[in-house]
């Protein structure tokens, strides 16, 4: 099989990069630190190129939508992306035109879409936080308690909710927090080793 298609090469690159980044954390050896530093810098540079690849795929997909479905929305999606890039790169992001675009169009859009999350909390909580089991009851009670604690008026609705809420937040849920964090960290390290050694991706599809 030609050199290009051999799976061992990307695996070898991944193992080398991963080992170097880890090793530099555990020694104060200067050359290791600068090698790991420049490897991380390479990551930033490749990420820049990857974003350009992503832009091509985005323009290609929306272009097909414009041709096939006469989609006006895809037209706006492509035009606004390319327009932003043109202003951002030709005039630099700190130009007055670019900052007008971001603070008067991107900000209101971004904040309005973000506000959906606040609205969706109510519909999700209304639908799901029903005391159908002890477990669901625990989630519901803890959530309500902490919300009351975080409200200045909560202290007047339910006196003592502040110390009780802080106790629940800082002590009682700390055990669950730590256990959950340790478990996923162990899982992430072992999964990371499997991924870098190429054990994972190809196998599951079989």
């Amino acid at each position: 099989m030609s050199l290009i298609n051999r799976r061992e090469i990307p695996i070898a690159i991944g193992v080398a990069a991963c080992t170097l980044v880890i090793a530099s954390y555990f020694t104060d050896n200067a050359s290791l630190a600068s090698a790991s530093g420049s490897l991380q810098l390479w990551g930033i540079i490749i990420a820049g190129f990857a974003t350009l690849l992503g832009l091509f795929s985005y323009v290609a997909y929306n272009g097909r939508q414009i041709v096939k479905k006469r989609s006006v929305y895809s037209g706006v999606a492509v035009a606004s992306a390319l327009g932003t890039i043109a202003i951002g790169l030709a005039l630099s992001p700190s130009s007055s035109q670019y900052s007008w675009l971001t603070s008067n169009i991107l900000t209101p859009l971004s904040m309005s879409v973000g506000s959906f999350i606040g609205f969706f909390i109510v519909s999700a909580a209304f639908r799901t936080f029903r005391a159908r089991s002890l477990e669901a009851g625990i989630v519901l009670a803890a959530a309500a308690m902490i919300m009351l604690k975080n409200m200045p008026v909560g202290e007047y609705l339910l006196p003592g909710v502040l110390p009780l809420g802080n106790w629940l937040n800082d002590i009682v849920s700390l055990g669950g927090n730590r256990g959950f964090t340790i478990a996923f960290a162990v899982g992430a390290i072992i999964a990371g080793v499997r991924q870098i050694l190429g054990f994972e991706r190809g196998r599951v599809a079989k």
Partner: peptide, 8 residues
């Protein structure tokens, strides 16, 4: 937050 609690 009062509205969320009310709907719960």
């Amino acid at each position: 937050q009062l509205v969320v609690i009310a709907f719960i």
